[in-house]
Design a protein around this nucleic acid. Sequence first.
RNA 1: GCUGCUAUAGUGUAGUCCGGCCAAUCAUGUCGGCCUUUCACGCCGACGACUGGGGUUCGAAUCCCCAUAGCAGCACCA
Length: 478
Amino acid sequence: MRDRYALPPLPDAENGVVMRFAPNPSGPLHLGHARAAALNDAYVRRYGGRYILRIEDTDPKRVDPAAYETVPEDIAWLECAITETVFQSDRLETYYDYARRLIERGGAYLCTCENERFRELRQAKRACPCRSQETEESLARFEAMLAGEYAEGEASLRVRTDLEHPDPALRDFPAFRVLTSTLHPRVDATVYPLMNFSVAIDDHLLGCTHVIRGKDHIANTRRQQFIYDWFGWTPPHFRHYGRMGIEGVVLSTSEMRAGIAEGRYGGWDDIRLGTLRALARRGIRPEAVKRSMLAIGCGETDIQYSWENLFAENRQLVDPEADRLWFVPEPVTVEVTGAMPQVSRPLRHPGDPARGTRELGFDRVVLVPKDELDQDVSMLRLKDLFNVRMGTDQDRTRFTYAGDDLAEARAAHAPIVQWLPLGATLPCTLCRPEGDVHGVCEPAVAEKVDRVIQFERVGFVRVDSVGPDGVVAYLTHR
RNA sequence: GCUGCUAUAGUGUAGUCCGGCCAAUCAUGUCGGCCUUUCACGCCGACGACUGGGGUUCGAAUCCCCAUAGCAGCACCA
């Protein structure tokens, strides 16, 4: 039987691979990044080799300095087997050097045409005047560009491709531009390579054998091919997967940033966001994220992924480990008559009795979920305690002890309900994407900060914090 | 508009290269049942798809053509 997480084999991979995950440091990583990171990671683990984290920070306008911290953190959380980290901003001299070599080979020229003018010419499949310049002149003008003799927008180094190419996007695309209006947080530069140039140079120099990335890069792959051709290099094997959306979630860093700035979201780990930090905060395991991404694979079809699939992966991981505890949402105080004080000892985990029990003392008054009282039943089973008959006394619900026999409760189709003693509880807020629920929980929940537990009959939650106002927990999923 | 890619159940996915073993795989979901002092887990069962139309062929999810739909690119972003 086929492994659900198995990926198709890669060509020429038998002797190991060199792959890379190359994000733009513009913010924390999200599910979209996770797909690329997980796919590449899985192949490196399968074939052995190197896995490069390459920070693509050649556009200072798109660099968020904080991301130099958050991106490696996020990738570590995802447990990807990164073997080395490379910053493109450290490699500017290398790119300049290869630019000179490309010019010498006749593969690039320095263009000083106005943008709009160039676009018109390109559309018409016509060469711009700069295209015919001598190699020497291109070289000299490129040095002048590096020396700061051109202002922003005045010059760019273009790769000589094919003016007749049916796709105008591939005709003489730019490789370098001048950028002085925005300072780079890490380096002092005025000339930056464009993505297609730095990526082609780096993939070759770092020895990348296979590249897996989104299909939004298909045109870039063709552009990069021209660079490989000029240098006589063999390109890596490429594979492009389709666009992925997730129901109800924004996977755009800029949109998330705007939402945070406007106060619509509490931060990058707001549980309504698709960032890895938000998933972590909800109690989604990195392994569940990776498995989901591997199950999706690298098909070229666009997909609308469903949370259900991710949740199912996570539930499988979390269920055997999560201790069971009780949370009573919207608690109602009810007096129980006819029963002696006693101690109930529910199991910490029904599948693993060895983990022991916790103690809940019953003494006349209990807190039960409000919703349970609205049901059209006359009998209730207080879980791990006894049966009660529901009655009312002056508009208030009252319980009367109705025996210990579980079979009787089943026969009467009595709901089995979690409860808590009046005294020994902690206030608890359960945060869900649809809104918060207030209630009380067992005091033992306070020992579970940062862990995923199951609130029985409610769902899995991650205990986020314990403060003076009680416990804050996030609903992971049911 | 131009250039290109893709199209299997509610969702994701296998099968498509090399046509028959596919009345189409697996997971998830929904419903029902069993188990159970949780509405969880586990187990059993049911539901549910080859975008449409032509063609080639003894035979098409698979090959060809057309249509339709979606997506990507057409940035001095990555």
